Amino acid sequence: MVAIYAVQDSGSRGRLYPEVESPVRSPWQRDRDRVLHSAGFRTLQYKTQVFINHEGDFFRTRLTHSLEVAQIARSIARSLDLNEDLTETVSLAHDLGHTPFGHAGEDALALAMKDWGGFDHNTQSLRLVTALEARYHAFDGLNLTWEALEGLAKHNGPVKRPTPYFVEYDAKHHLDLQSHASAEAQVAAMSDDIAYHGHDLDDGLRAGLLSFEDIEDLPLVGEALRRSRDMERQIGREASDQAQRVRHETIRVVINQLATDLTEQTRRNLEALNPQSADDIRHAGYPVVAFSPEMREANKAIRKFLYARMYRHWRVNRMARKAKIAVREIFDILSEDPGLLPDPLRGHAKAADDVQRRRLVADYIAGMTDRFAMEEHRRLTDLSVLG
Rank of each mutant, 00 (worst) to 15 (best):
G339S: 05
D279V: 04
A224G: 02
A323K: 03
P293E: 06
F331T: 14
S292R: 03
E232V: 07
G236C: 15
G285W: 09
R318A: 04
G236Q: 15
A243H: 10
D337C: 00
S292H: 07
Q234D: 04
N256S: 10
V316C: 00
H313W: 04
N299T: 14
E264P: 01
D241A: 15
R268M: 12
Q244P: 03
E264H: 04
L340K: 11
H313P: 05
R245S: 14
K324F: 01
T263Y: 09
A243E: 15
K304Q: 14
W314I: 09
R237P: 02
D279S: 09
L340M: 11
L340S: 10
R229K: 14
M295A: 11
L345Q: 01
P275R: 04
R318E: 10
P344L: 02
A326Y: 09
D280K: 01
L225P: 08
V316A: 00
L270F: 02
Q244E: 13
E238Q: 07
L258Y: 03
W314E: 13
S335L: 11
A239D: 15
P275W: 01
A284L: 10
N269E: 12
R312V: 11
R233K: 15
K304R: 15
I235W: 00
E297N: 05
H248T: 11
L270M: 02
R226S: 12
L345F: 03
E336N: 12
R318M: 07
P344I: 05
R268N: 11
R267F: 07
A308E: 13
N317V: 04
D230Q: 08
E264S: 03
P287G: 03
L270I: 06
A320C: 09
L341R: 12
I235D: 00
D261H: 06
H248N: 07
P287W: 00
R346Y: 11
Y307W: 09
F291N: 05
V289Y: 08
V289G: 12
E264R: 06
P344F: 01
R296F: 01
R237H: 14
H248L: 07
R321D: 07
N269H: 09
D261Q: 09
R252H: 12
I330S: 05
V288I: 14
